[in-house]
Every structure is written in structure tokens, then in C-alpha cells.
Design a protein around this nucleic acid. Structure first.
Lengths: 214, 214
DNA sequence: GGAAAAATGGACCAGCAAGTCCAGAAACGG
DNA sequence: CCGTTTCTGGACTTGCTGGTCCATTTTTCC
């Protein structure tokens, strides 16, 4: 590829990534060939390799990054303002809607299996996504704690980690079974847990140990 | 394949499935060829197609079933006797150990992505696995309820669904990041939730909101 | 306006891996 | 035993797909 992309070049590259993402979502990673992507995006073989010198894997990685960005973006603005039970509920609904409408396609999951988790870039993408996602949740839990809606004795990071795991698993099960009940159960149970902690802690005298936040 | 398998035939077929499972776990689904399996299991091409007339996909499906059976088996006997906090803890340790030692390989997950979730057999396998797994967990929660260790107001099926989602997500994240913290957090938080419900409900006996079951 | 750089088109290549085929060995069964 | 079935070996075919190459067009920028 060139060092400098012209406006046209950038547009083409973006078109390829977006088209590839669609194709991959529709047909699955294993079944999608470069020719499918080429024909869908109205490009030629040389363009594919021009913009993604590493070939197929390179392109898949770009799509993975594209999809990863979408994941958090689709949860906004709710994910960024989890400071009341109401906003919490709004976020939950947005999350469930997002994945239900996505159907049984999990571009990211497939992508990583195909590219290989060990490849330098792949693991970094998912790692960063999980980190940010969990950080958002943890921040929301802290906000609830500050508002006295959640017991200060809970460790926001641990609760966020558990909730994130529940979400991932819920989505995974939904992909496999077509049923979003587990996703809902995971989020709702976590919420109930947080709610109950407050009802639990407040009446009693609480020994409030501070929790370090990185 | 023949209608009737001789003892030798059954042994060969089993050898192929087990060898294929190992190979797939080591090298990943996408990277494993029939020739790899053939050479590892000391068989010939014609044997592969003799025992799995549908070819590669057919074999992958058989391996998927094999791996699915292992998942629950590896959690026994603990998964079958979740009737005290102690046994619950033993199960938890066995679960975490199992997946930590498995490293970052998730045969089942990859298998389904490769074979295609929509294929007749594939979905049925994962569906049945999830059903059984959740049933075991729900039964365990009911046992705790019977023992007065968990509030009777909780819906065992919903709690089991949420826990199962947490486990799946925890494993998934572990595969991606190499860190089992999420898996532990998911199980431990769910356990804490169950425990707290008892401590919560017994002293007061308040009526909580009912939870719908899908 | 023109040289250099970037973008594009598409023919071509090479390798690989799934799947086929048939001949022959082993096992069964009466 | 001997005919029939099952099992096994391995060479061969075939189609596909990622990747290469170079000629041509378009854009950039002085």
C-alpha cells in the first residue's frame, strides 16, 4: 500500500471494510472468499491487496476492529451514563435489542477463531474491547454506589467482570440457540444482585472498606 | 458406510473421532486438514470417508458431539450433587480447573462456527448440552432452597440461566484473553447472590418481585 | 502541463485440500 | 471352507481460492 492515501483511496478502503463486514455477517467467515468481497464491494483483486497487503488475514483483522468499535458504539449513549436504575434499564433494553436484531451472527467471535487468537493484533482488539466495556460497567456501578443505590461493600470491578461475562455468555447462547432468555436473565440477575445489596446493607451498620480503583 | 459395523470398525471410528478431537484442539478447526487427522490416527483417506460419508462436516459434527459429552462429564460427580455450599465450591473448583487446564482452546465453539450453526445436527448438540447443564444447575439451586440455604423466592431456572450465561461468557473471555478472572467472578458473584438471598430473606421474609420464566 | 505517485482492472499462477475410485486384505457367517 | 461383506491403502482428480503481476488510468502537486 502507499504511505499516503488519497481521499479516494480512503473511501475505497472504507468501502471494502464495510462491505466485507456485511458479507461476513451474512455468509460467515469460513464461507466468505475474497472474491465474494471483491464482487460485493465492486473492487478488483489488486485493490484488495493494495489496501491490505497482508491479504485475507489483514482484511479480517480490519473488519474485526470495525466490528469491535461498533459494539460499544451501539450501546451509547446509555452505556456512558449508567447512574440511575432508569438509565441502567435503558441500557439493558438497548443491549438486548442490539443483539436480538443482529440475529444469530457474531462477527467478532467468528473472526477471532478464523484469524487465530494468538495473532498479534487479534488478541489486542478483543482485549481492548473487553477492557473498555468492563470499565464502563464498573463506572456505572460506582455511580450507583455514590448515589447510595448500591452497597459500597461490593467491588465494582468484580461485579462488572461478572456482568460482562454474563453478557458475553448470554450473547453466545443466543447465537447458538436463537433464544435471548439467557442474556436477559444474566443482566437482570446482576441488576437484582446490585439492588439487593443496597436493601441489604443500608439497614445494618455497614463497615465500609474502600476499594482501590485503577 | 455399512449398515453394520464390526468390532474393528467401531474401534477405528472411535479412534478417528478421538484423534480428530485432539488434533482440532491443538491446531484449531480452520487449520486442521483431513490429512492431518488421517496421519495422526493412522488411517487412510478411504477410511475417513467410509466412516463419515458426509466428509469433513460429518466428522466435525461427530467430534462436536464427542466434545459436548466431555463437557458435562468433566464436571462430574460434583455437578450432580450441588446440595451444599461445600459441594458447590468443589464443583466451582473443578470447573475452573477444567477450563484453565484446557488453555485457550474451545473445541466446541470453533466447531460450531465452522460447521455452521444452522446445520441440522449442530444446533441440536449445543441446545441439548445447554439444556442439561442448566438443568443440573437449577436442580442444585432447588436443593439449596430445600435446605434453607437459598431464598425460596428466587426462580431456580432463571438463576441457573444467568449462571450458565456467566460461565459461558467467562470461558469465552478466558479463551480470548487467557485470563480466568471473569469466569471466577461470574461463578463467585452468582454464588454470593444466592447466599445473600437467604441472609436477606430469612430475617425479614419480604415479598420480592416475581420473575417470569421464558 | 507534465512527471510522479496512487489507484484500478483483470488475467494468470500455484498449491492445497476435499473428495473419488478401485484393488486388495481381513473378517464374517453359514 | 468359501462366498459375501466389511475394511483398508493410497494414487488420482478436480475445483477453488489466496495471492502475484503488470498494464492502464486517474489523481496529485509543483
Amino acid at each position: 500500500m502507499a504511505q499516503t492515501l488519497t481521499a479516494k483511496g480512503r473511501a475505497t478502503k472504507a468501502r471494502i471494510v464495510e462491505g466485507a463486514a456485511e458479507e461476513l455477517r451474512e455468509r460467515g467467515v469460513a464461507a466468505t472468499t475474497l472474491d465474494d468481497i471483491r464482487s460485493r464491494t465492486g473492487t478488483s483483486k489488486s485493490q484488495l491487496f493494495h489496501y491490505f497487503p497482508g491479504g485475507r488475514d489483514d482484511l479480517l483483522l480490519a473488519v474485526a476492529q470495525f466490528e469491535a468499535d461498533r459494539v460499544l458504539h451501539d450501546q451509547q449513549p446509555h452505556l456512558g451514563e449508567l447512574d440511575s436504575w432508569q438509565s441502567w434499564q435503558q441500557w439493558r433494553d438497548a443491549l438486548v435489542d442490539r443483539y436480538e436484531s443482529q440475529g444469530d451472527q457474531c462477527p467478532l467471535g467468528s473472526l477471532f477463531l478464523q484469524v487465530g487468537r494468538d495473532r498479534p493484533g487479534a488478541r489486542a482488539i478483543v482485549l481492548e474491547l473487553m477492557r473498555q466495556w468492563q470499565e464502563h460497567l464498573a463506572r456505572g456501578i460506582r455511580a450507583l454506589q455514590d448515589g447510595g443505590l448500591v452497597s459500597p461493600e461490593l467491588d465494582p470491578r468484580k461485579e462488572a467482570a461478572a456482568l460482562l461475562a454474563g453478557i458475553q455468555g448470554g450473547v453466545l447462547i443466543m447465537m447458538s440457540t436463537g433464544n435471548s432468555a439467557h442474556l436477559r436473565a444474566a443482566v437482570d440477575t446482576a441488576t437484582a444482585h446490585l439492588r439487593a445489596s443496597a436493601a441489604d446493607a443500608q439497614p445494618r451498620g455497614r463497615t465500609d472498606h474502600r476499594l482501590a480503583v485503577p
